[in-house]
Amino acid sequence: MLFMIIERFRGGGAAPVYERFRERGRMAPDGLRYIDSWVDASFSRCFQLMECDDLSLLLAWVS
């Protein structure tokens, strides 16, 4: 199954999120696959396309 995740950046915008990503990676559980992502022009939202066969993996990752 494919899922579109929309992440809204708060406070400091995207910078803290990208810093965490550089330090720890995507932090997705095994079985949850990253497909693609893009950020809107204002850097206030990130759209991520993810894929998995087990919805519980996605729910664990977003929590």
Rank of each mutant, 00 (worst) to 15 (best):
M1T: 13
M1N: 09
L2R: 13
F3E: 00
M4E: 09
M4A: 11
M4I: 15
I5D: 03
I5S: 03
I5Q: 04
I6Q: 01
E7P: 03
E7D: 13
R8G: 11
R8V: 13
R8E: 15
F9M: 02
R10L: 15
G11A: 12
G12D: 15
G12Q: 13
A14G: 10
A15W: 09
P16V: 02
P16M: 02
P16S: 03
V17L: 06
Y18E: 13
Y18C: 06
E19W: 11
E19L: 14
E19I: 13
E19H: 13
R20D: 14
R20W: 04
F21S: 07
F21I: 12
R22L: 15
E23V: 09
R24T: 15
R24C: 14
G25D: 07
G25M: 01
R26F: 05
R26Y: 06
M27S: 12
A28S: 11
A28W: 14
D30P: 15
G31H: 01
L32S: 04
L32V: 08
R33N: 12
Y34W: 14
Y34R: 02
I35N: 00
I35A: 02
I35S: 00
S37V: 01
S37H: 08
S37T: 05
S37E: 07
W38L: 08
V39T: 14
V39Q: 08
V39D: 12
A41R: 10
A41D: 12
A41H: 11
F43P: 00
R45D: 07
R45M: 10
R45Q: 13
F47R: 01
F47V: 03
F47S: 03
Q48C: 04
L49C: 07
L49A: 05
L49T: 01
L49D: 00
M50A: 12
M50V: 14
M50K: 01
C52M: 02
C52K: 01
C52Q: 03
C52W: 04
D53T: 13
D53P: 04
D53E: 14
D54A: 03
L55T: 11
S56P: 05
S56R: 08
S56A: 11
S56L: 03
L57F: 11
L57H: 07
L58Y: 05
L59S: 09
A60P: 04
W61A: 08
W61T: 02
V62M: 09
V62K: 05
